[in-house]
Amino acid sequence: MTPIALLGVPNDENSSYLRGPAEAPAAIRRELFSDAYAQYSESGVDLSAPGRWIDHGDVRFDAGVDPWTSIETAVERALEPGHPLISLGGDHAVTHPILRAVRRRHSRLTIVHVDAHPDIYDAYQGNPRSHASPFARIMEEGLADRLIQVGLRATSAEHRAQFRRFGVETVSAAQWTGDLQLRIDGPVYLSLDLDALDPAFAPGVSHREPGGATPRQAIGLIHSLERRLVAADVVEYNPRCDIENTTALVAAKLVKEIAGILAGGTRAAANLAA
């Protein structure tokens, strides 16, 4: 049995508009482990099996310590036993220090970044650590060999210049139709911003962008990464903006499907269940 490591990253100090994503890890865990919902992934994995989850709790942020150091250190410790990791943000800025630790374990790495926004500004509002800028830092530091951004529907001229600078591959929301198949060899890191989904399904985000994906599209993409996925994060859930806990439930569902694939579940099993 493959245990799945879980780590909360309750940090939103680099959010540009609203605070609240720091409260997300606890809210997602509450739905993830609720008796109200099935504990099997669609890919056929029993997530309730003893020892399936190894929850490392939340990153501790101590005064006088760079938060990026705290995150990177906590991720390194969670990865040390060799278990695949799902990190719960927090805003999207936290993906940068997470990937510093993940990259050390993978000489080849492709990032599949699912989001309404490219988050690749050089320094949004003058902040190089902004949640709108992590992928600029990630690519500058060579933390991935490929960056594929899926679901985009809010791009600017600066974004397009950054795409050219870093060789980013993009699939816009308009292009994301049907069963998306990405051609990827080698390990994959999935970074899933919940505002990639249409706000009809995930209203609990700080930056709602209509015209987004459905949860079914996101689940299909997760399942398509079988045998290549090595770690993931789910970020930008803002409980303060949620409606009747809708987004927390969707986030928990996506975490379950990510966990199923990390634990060896298959798309064939998901299709059989359907």
Rank of each mutant, 00 (worst) to 15 (best):
Gly167Glu: 04
Gly167Leu: 01
Gly167Gln: 06
Gly167Ser: 04
Val168Glu: 08
Val168Gln: 05
Val168Gly: 15
Val168Phe: 15
Val168Ile: 12
Glu169Val: 14
Glu169Tyr: 12
Glu169Lys: 15
Glu169Asn: 02
Glu169Gly: 06
Glu169Thr: 10
Thr170Cys: 06
Thr170Gly: 15
Thr170Val: 15
Thr170Asn: 13
Thr170Asp: 08
Val171Met: 10
Val171His: 13
Val171Trp: 10
Ser172Pro: 15
Ser172Leu: 03
Ser172Gln: 03
Ser172Ile: 11
Ser172Asp: 15
Ser172Val: 08
Ser172Tyr: 02
Ala173Asp: 13
Ala173Glu: 11
Ala174Thr: 09
Ala174Trp: 11
Ala174Gln: 10
Ala174Arg: 07
Gln175Asp: 12
Gln175Leu: 06
Gln175His: 05
Gln175Ser: 09
Gln175Pro: 11
Gln175Cys: 02
Gln175Arg: 14
Trp176Met: 12
Trp176Pro: 13
Trp176Asp: 04
Trp176Leu: 11
Thr177Tyr: 01
Thr177Val: 05
Thr177Arg: 13
Thr177Gly: 14
Gly178Tyr: 12
Gly178Phe: 02
Gly178Val: 02
Gly178Ile: 06
Asp179Glu: 13
Asp179Asn: 13
Asp179Ala: 13
Asp179Gly: 12
Leu180Arg: 11
Leu180Asp: 04
Leu180Tyr: 10
Leu180Gln: 10
Leu180Met: 04
Leu180Gly: 09
Gln181Pro: 13
Leu182Arg: 12
Leu182Tyr: 07
Leu182Ser: 05
Arg183Lys: 15
Arg183Gly: 14
Arg183Cys: 14
Ile184Cys: 05
Ile184Met: 05
Ile184Arg: 01
Asp185His: 07
Asp185Gly: 08
Asp185Thr: 05
Asp185Asn: 14
Gly186Lys: 03
Gly186Arg: 06
Gly186Cys: 07
Gly186Tyr: 07
Pro187His: 04
Val188Ser: 02
Val188His: 06
Val188Leu: 05
Tyr189Ala: 05
Tyr189Cys: 07
Tyr189Val: 03
Tyr189Ile: 06
Tyr189Arg: 04
Tyr189Thr: 13
Leu190Pro: 08
Leu190Asp: 13
Leu190Trp: 02
Ser191Gly: 00
Ser191Trp: 00
Ser191Thr: 09
Ser191Tyr: 00
Ser191Val: 00
Leu192Ala: 13
Leu192Lys: 00
Leu192Ser: 10
Leu192Phe: 12
Leu192Ile: 10
Leu192His: 08
Leu192Asn: 08
Asp193Cys: 09
Asp193His: 00
Asp193Leu: 00
Asp193Pro: 09
Leu194Lys: 14
Asp195Lys: 01
Asp195Gly: 11
Asp195His: 03
Asp195Val: 04
Asp195Leu: 02
Asp195Thr: 06
Asp195Cys: 02
Ala196Met: 09
Ala196Phe: 01
Ala196Gly: 12
Ala196Val: 14
Leu197Phe: 02
Leu197Lys: 10
Leu197Cys: 03
Leu197Gly: 08
Leu197Arg: 07
Asp198Pro: 04
Asp198Phe: 01
Asp198Tyr: 02
Pro199Trp: 07
Pro199Gly: 05
Pro199Ser: 06
Pro199Lys: 15
Pro199Tyr: 04
